[in-house]
């Protein structure tokens, strides 16, 4: 009641009541008088409509869900974390480049693969491990949702997820005589993933990234590579979407010597599975490969066809409902 009463007055305050303009103020008073009668039924109707009252009461805002369908947009991570006590198994595959021609069956003869398990410790905190066949690399990551976008309010306009990963190459060193430290096998990635779901179809993400390599092959190569990623998805139907992703490497030796990765993808969701099919000029499936080490060009046909398949398993026993036969 209080609220409606106040808002009725606030409508009046738009009327420029200025006593110095004598004649006018009288007119305004008249307008005000009429307006009060016009407005009355409106506010009373709202008061009498129980449903309007109930709807106003249940106006609590909810967190925006499903900004992206999967934990990856294409190669890079999305803001999505694994829900608490759920395990995700992911198989990623990249075939050879299309320019391999008929002899290499347009790339399908060759393949690199990454297998990964990701687990939700809580709804906001995920851990993951993976193994890429490329350079026999293991990787582990932590991902935490710092901020969650809320529906219908600007209080939390974006979802922000922090991401940190370590990759360990286990390839034998070229020169067994030379004594290399274990630390020279390591590379780290730090990302701040910032995404907004603009509507039920369109989501956009920006991903400022730092890739740090402990050991690089030449003097010219940079240990620290900074990049800005951008990714988006557009839902075509309830269960399919088009995705695009681009990583811009900030100017430096790496930007001069390597190519920025660009990828196009198509997501299909079927129950517990998400299939992601894509075309990309990057071969590796973890950050230290596809951000600072991409060499193929789209223009030259250096395009890899690939897919990610993920499947979730729920381990939440507390919530388990016994099956009745």
């Amino acid at each position: 009641m209080k609220r409606i009463y106040k808002s009725t007055f606030s409508k009046f305050s738009f009327l420029p009541l200025n006593p110095s303009k004598g004649g006018l103020s009288h007119k305004f008073a008249k307008v005000l008088y009429i307006a009060s009668f016009l407005l009355l039924p409106v506010s009373l109707a709202a008061q009498n409509d129980l449903l309007a009252l109930a709807e106003a009461d249940s106006a609590a805002t909810a967190y925006t869900t499903a900004t992206f369908k999967a934990t990856r947009i294409i190669n890079g991570h999305s803001v999505q974390t694994i829900p608490g006590k759920e395990l995700l198994f992911m198989i990623s595959h990249r075939f050879g480049t299309l320019d391999g021609g008929a002899y290499n069956f347009f790339g399908l003869d060759a393949a690199t693969i990454r297998l990964a398990l990701e687990y939700g410790l809580t709804d906001r905190f995920s851990v993951g491990v993976g193994r890429s066949s490329l350079e026999k690399t293991y990787d582990g990551y932590l991902k935490y949702k710092l901020l969650r976008q809320k529906d219908d309010t600007w209080a939390a306009p974006v979802t922000v997820t922090g991401f940190a990963s370590t990759a360990i190459t286990t390839l034998r060193f070229d020169n067994p005589e030379k004594n290399e430290d274990f630390s020279s096998r390591l590379a780290y990635t730090y990302q701040l993933l910032i995404a907004r779901k603009f509507n039920d179809r369109f989501s956009l993400q920006l991903s400022p990234t730092l890739v740090h390599r402990n050991l690089v092959s030449t003097n010219r190569d940079e240990n620290n590579v900074y990049a800005l990623g951008a990714g988006s998805r557009y839902k075509l139907t309830k269960r399919t979407s088009l995705n695009a992703e681009y990583f811009y490497v900030l100017p430096g030796a790496t930007a001069d010597d390597y190519i920025n990765s660009f990828s196009l993808g198509f997501d299909i969701e079927t129950g517990g599975h998400v299939f992601q099919l894509h075309l990309t000029n990057a071969q590796g499936m973890i950050e230290k490969f596809f951000i600072p080490q991409t060499l193929s060009k789209w223009g030259d046909g250096g395009i890899y066809f690939g897919f990610n398949i993920s499947r979730v398993f729920s381990f939440d026993k507390d919530k388990k409902v016994e099956k009745k036969w």
């Binding site: 129980l50 449903l51 009252l53 109930a54 709807e55 009461d57 249940s58 609590a60 909810a62 869900t65 829900p83 608490g84 759920e86 709804d123 529906d151 517990g272 979730v312 729920s314 939440d316 919530k319 388990k320 409902v321």
Partner: peptide, 16 residues
């Protein structure tokens, strides 16, 4: 008698 039910507040066993 009136009800207003926020649909996002339904909690399922599986988040999917």
């Amino acid at each position: 008698l009136v009800f207003s039910v926020p649909m996002k507040a339904f909690q399922f066993r599986k988040s999917l």
